[in-house]
Design a protein around this nucleic acid. Structure first.
Lengths: 141, 141
DNA sequence: AATATTTTATTAGCCGGCTAAATAAATTAT
DNA sequence: ATAATTTATTTAGCCGGCTAATAAAATATT
């Protein structure tokens, strides 16, 4: 009963997040925020809207994350001149530095750890199967 | 970049939770609470401590979930006579009914949907690989 | 018996995630 | 021009998850 796919994935996700939190504590960040910063770093001054798409998260979530990251000095929010509705977000120096370090110390580290003893074929297979699962569950109904 | 194992698992987990929330809304429950109820149903009058073990979750989380489920009439909390520290939790009628229905309408439904177009071998393989991932990531360091 | 330690639960507070409702600005239609 | 609609963000409120600090009861020590 404890080895359903759902349960395993939930469990992995939880442990992954906790490990992320541990690793990110050194930067005063929480799991999820590193992805936010990395996305902004790659995408340049991004719109909130663009962020919700890239991060695949609700606008409300983006707003609050940006708010906290701004409060802690990782990024700035500026209203666009042309369209006063849109808000552009960009990294501060602190944010840039954190983002660039974090990708290696957290993301890659965890990713490697997850599949450390798997053959290349197994990794490919696992990825394929997970993509299939995601596809299956994303459909309507 | 979007097809790392970490990202896929996080994404599946999120969609899974959202689908769960949709299905559970009919019972006035949220994703996670169904597991709580199911666990209590199987285990009888359980201790908070036992629940943290079975649900693999923090004591704080169990306390608050129990509090909410009690508030909404799904379960009762009773202090143990022998040891006044321990709290035993048991399902109300409402809780029992919800739990028994939910297992089919939510859990199994989602589980089947996730692997619907996979062969038996693929399912077994996926499970094995996920268990390996969980093992890898659970270790210290 | 009196004190110290361990065990069980709770509380407070912080995060990310979501929904639904509210703002506000830009478009489009009338 | 004015009204109606669409689009971009925000706000409020609810969930589960975690950590750290507290409280309270049971055990172990001295």
């Amino acid at each position: 009963m404890c080895s359903t796919i759902s349960h395993l994935i939930t469990q992995i996700c939880k442990v992954h997040r906790n490990k992320g939190n541990q690793l990110l504590a050194a930067y005063n960040l929480h799991a999820g925020q590193e992805q936010f910063l990395a996305t902004v770093m790659c995408g340049g001054a991004m719109t909130m809207n663009e962020l919700t798409e890239h991060l695949e998260v609700t606008p409300a979530t983006v707003t609050r994350m940006a708010e906290r990251l701004e409060k802690n000095g990782f990024l700035n929010k500026v209203k666009c001149c042309n369209d006063q509705r849109v808000v552009r977000v960009s990294l501060t120096e602190k944010g840039t530095e954190a983002a660039s370090q974090i990708i290696d110390t957290t993301w890659n580290k965890l990713e490697e750890q997850m599949v450390k003893n798997m053959s290349t074929e197994e990794k490919i297979l696992l990825r394929r199967l997970l993509m299939q699962v995601l596809d299956n569950i994303e459909e309507e109904k």
